[in-house]
Amino acid sequence: MSSTAPAVARSAISPADPVLRGGWEVSARRSTADLTLSDESSLAKILVRGGVNGAVRQVVGTRFGRAARTERAGHPVLAVGSGPGEWLVIGPTGTARALLEDLESAASGTGEFASVLDVTHGRALVRLRGRRSADVLNKICGIDLDDASTPDGAALRTSVAAVATDLVRDDGPGAGEPSYLLHVERSSGQHLFDVLLDAGAEFGIEVTGPELDTWSE
């Protein structure tokens, strides 16, 4: 009697030194370079749409243009105000179902129209971390990334490497260095990753595995 192998989820970005973690094929590579790029696509990603200033905004917990670390369904999440009346909730790998159900229940309780959609497998998410990360982005993005203009917690939608991108400044607790999350359609993931590597070459950029410990329970 044959047994069926468990399904393996894969990002649009080819992993270096692939291993399985949480049902996903991810990179096992670890770099201590001052500038790193990682594929974080295995993180849960829930898209929420509703009224710009209504109760749905209160449910998600942040406003347009800002990102905030909070908790949902017992899991740490990053809630991102990615557009007017549009939010992205990012959580630990494997929590998409729990986050989806929690957000659907909370949004329906407001009495307002809202849509809640799991886009985990349909989107790519990468993290650029390091002191020179803004210098890398300045080569392929027209946004002013000075600390005064885009501090930790800033969120915006812009063009990066000619790709429509949600760009989030997310230094993380106690990180002490700039870190940016870049969220794009799955089909653009590998292109964005490759362009970021090329732009960061002069600054010594290295690929590292996903920072899944950042989202530990």
Rank of each mutant, 00 (worst) to 15 (best):
S2W: 13
S2G: 09
S3H: 12
V8Q: 04
V8G: 02
V8E: 02
R10G: 04
S11I: 05
P15L: 05
A16E: 06
D17E: 15
D17S: 15
P18S: 08
P18G: 08
V19L: 08
V19I: 09
L20N: 04
G23W: 07
G23A: 05
E25A: 03
V26R: 00
V26A: 00
A28H: 04
R29S: 14
R29V: 14
D34K: 11
D34R: 10
A44E: 08
V48Y: 06
G50A: 10
N53D: 15
G54F: 00
V56C: 04
V56E: 04
V59W: 13
T62E: 02
R66V: 00
A68F: 06
T70S: 11
T70Q: 06
A73K: 13
G74W: 12
H75V: 12
L78Q: 01
V80E: 03
G81Y: 03
S82T: 09
P84A: 10
G85Y: 07
L88H: 01
T93K: 11
G94S: 08
G94F: 07
A98N: 04
L99P: 00
E104G: 04
A106G: 09
G109T: 06
G109K: 10
G111F: 00
E112S: 01
V119T: 10
H121I: 07
R123W: 08
L125A: 02
R127L: 12
G130N: 03
S133E: 11
S133Q: 13
A134T: 10
A134F: 10
A134N: 11
L137E: 02
L137M: 01
N138T: 05
K139T: 05
K139V: 07
G142H: 07
I143T: 12
A148S: 14
A148L: 10
T150I: 04
P151C: 03
G153L: 01
A154D: 01
A155F: 00
T158A: 10
V160L: 10
A161N: 09
A161E: 15
A161L: 15
V168A: 07
G172H: 13
P173Y: 14
G174S: 09
A175I: 13
G176M: 10
G176T: 03
Y180K: 11
L181W: 09
L182V: 11
L182G: 05
H183I: 10
V184T: 02
R186T: 01
G189F: 06
G189T: 04
H191K: 15
L192R: 08
D198G: 12
A199R: 06
A201N: 08
E202V: 04
E206F: 09
G209M: 05
E217T: 12
E217N: 15
